[in-house]
């Protein structure tokens, strides 16, 4: 028996495979396809302080080896989550993490404080890629100062594991990672979607209602791997790697680059059973390479 269990500081995962926020609903959407208790953790939809309708249609465009989305954080707000959704999903035998978003610091703080009270939610993932309305629309996660300020404020009210999800739309992601580590983040997850756009040459129109949107899928994998590797060499807190993971081989690559755990997003749309297959595939890889403990693979990239 090989050991697949990993720890993100105090947070134990039975294996390193988690799902990416916004691609896995509340987990319920996948109950027909897989046994959620086989996963290390699930990330539920981006949750905000208040109800959000999200962006108008069209919200999605397929691109070479990937897709662009402009969902715009459609969700019913944190109160609805606590009252209606949480009681339905809290029995899952896996770590349930809530992805928390906001456009002003107060919203992040209030949302995190409410989720702090939920017994079966051991951690939140702070999504700092949303535009900061007060500072003129620039994303919190694109400057060290604003990233630090939101993490600092949430850290004061949130007592459990605080994961911070980093945006790749920056010049130097290690600076942001160091800034959130300094303010008390317990782990970082990366990457969120890369800003992109798609045009229909025939109609001369953009394919998304918002013109630009977030790119995900295998198209972003090399960028994501590079960023995980850079952040691994810059911080001491554990890293959760994601971006374009389609199979166990991709997952292993992220772990070798320094990720303690990984998340799977877009791949769930193409194969709703992919997460379970990745768990099995990681185990097979370990047996094939005679590795007893997954922890021996974290950051084990051999240069030269």
């Amino acid at each position: 028996m090989v050991n697949l269990g990993v720890k993100l500081k105090d947070l134990s995962l039975k294996n390193p495979v988690m799902t990416a926020s916004g691609t896995f609903g509340f987990g319920e959407e996948f109950e027909d396809f897989i046994d959620l208790s086989n996963l290390g953790g699930i990330l539920v939809k981006g949750t905000t302080r208040h109800h959000r309708e999200g962006n108008p249609y069209p919200r999605m465009a397929e691109t070479p080896s990937g897709m662009l989305n402009a969902v715009g954080l459609q969700n019913k707000g944190v109160e609805n989550f606590c009252k209606d959704i949480y009681p339905r999903i809290k029995h899952y035998d896996t770590n349930i993490l809530v992805n928390v978003s906001g456009s002003v610091i107060e919203d992040y703080v209030e949302t995190a404080a409410m989720i702090n009270e939920l017994e079966h939610i051991p951690a939140i993932e702070l999504n700092i890629s949303c535009p900061n309305v007060k500072e003129g629309g620039m994303a919190f996660g694109t400057s060290c100062a604003s990233a630090a300020s939101v993490v600092k404020a949430v850290r004061e009210v949130y007592k459990k594991h605080l994961m911070v999800k980093l945006s790749p739309n920056v010049t130097d992601i290690t600076e942001i990672a160091k800034a959130v580590e300094a303010e008390g983040a317990d782990s970082v997850s990366l990457i969120n979607t890369l800003l992109g756009m798609a045009i229909d040459a025939e109609t001369r129109k953009p394919l998304l209602s918002t013109v630009t949107g977030g790119l995900s899928g295998p198209a972003v994998k090399p960028v994501a791997l590079r960023m995980v590797w850079q952040v691994f060499n810059a911080v001491n807190i554990p890293i959760v790697g994601l971006g374009g993971i389609m199979n166990a081989k991709d997952a292993i690559e992220f772990i070798l680059a320094g990720a303690t755990a990984i998340q799977i997003g877009t791949a769930n749309f193409i194969d709703p059973q992919v997460t379970e297959k990745v768990v099995v595939g990681i185990e097979e890889y370990m047996k094939r390479h005679n590795v007893q403990d997954i922890n021996d693979l974290i950051g084990a990239l051999q240069i030269q």
């Binding site: 691609t23 609903g25 069209p58 919200r59 999605m60 465009a61 989305n69 769930n268």
Partner: peptide, 17 residues
């Protein structure tokens, strides 16, 4: 019809007003 990524309610890419 709509633009669909998943087809089973997980992505919210396919909304109709």
């Amino acid at each position: 019809e709509n633009t669909m990524a998943c087809g089973f309610g997980a992505c919210l890419c396919c909304v109709t007003e």
